[in-house]
Amino acid sequence: MELAALEKQLRTLQTESIAKIGAAETSAALDDLGSSLLGKRGALTDLLRGIGALSAEDRPKIGAIANEVRAAIDAALSDRRGAAGAAELSALIAAESADPTAPGPLPQVGSLHPISETIGAIARIMASFGFTVAEGQEVEDDVTNFQLLNIPEDHPSRDLWDTLYLREPGRLLRTHTSPGQIRTMRAVQPPIRVILPGRCFRYEAVDASHGFEFHQVEGLLVDRGTTLADLKGILDELARGLFGPSTRTRFRPGYYPFTEPSVAVDVSWGGAKDGWMTILGAGMVHPIVLENGGIDPETHQGFAFGLGVERIAMLRHEIPDLRAFLENDLRMLRGLR
């Protein structure tokens, strides 16, 4: 074959191929064209089989021409691919598009109960002052719940705790978390910093602010030199942690048989909710209680406090009725998160 004829065929292939490429619509058609024109068994390879009949000096010439043709077809393919790809992508996006403004389904949102949320909040605040959690038993005995806390049998101060008793003599449901003070002191050497959260029971008619089951958090600190001034300092921080940095506190004398001096703590937020709200009772641990806990009141002293979890939760979350805590209405539980 002659150089001129082969060259003509190659040029024709170039022209026809570019026309076909221009007419192709999809990436898939272009891929097919690509392999039928430039592939191992493609048209270009076919034509070049005739190269063997050329003279040695013509071969390089035709090689150069073939490369031009290949490059031209390639360029045409690549151009066309870009255009087809963009169109296909647009079509794909258009086909897959939905209305993005729909609100989306909601998750089933869970929640912690306000009682454990509140206990958790107290525990986190107190942990920053080195207090760890300890837990006592709810079925108690008269000795630990009362007598060791300096509340003798037949003392009028027993009237402060209306008690639910078990049938077994001497057993009762703890009326407060304070017996945990005795159990902690007997189990742990000072320095002691613990809080004791848990369920308590009283023989008490149910209304918006009373229940026969409720929760308390007891706090106990015993070391060598902690004072009433320290009690004020820690409880100030607790009040601010629970109710916000602008909370004001008022400390006034209270009465508990197991503390001496005893303290009642009121808080106030000012503004619309003005007035003092009593949130907890506290005091310096009574020397008799220290002694009953196996600690020498001449070398050690400290303070204790006890607060009602429901009352704190009611104030924090503006829950108007204590009965709601045991109702477990999901509408209320989910409202708190």
């Binding site: 742990v188 910093r193 070391d223 009433l228 001034a229 820690i234 400390f251 001496e260 310096m284 020397p287």
Partner: peptide
């Protein structure tokens, strides 16, 4: 301790400056 309480309450709890116990950490 009973006398201590009388002194404290007559002195006035409101006059006691709050402090934080810094030593004796468990």
């Amino acid at each position: 301790a009973d006398i201590a309480e009388e002194v404290a309450r007559l002195y006035g709890y409101d006059r006691i400056t709050p402090t934080l116990p810094g030593r004796d950490l468990p």
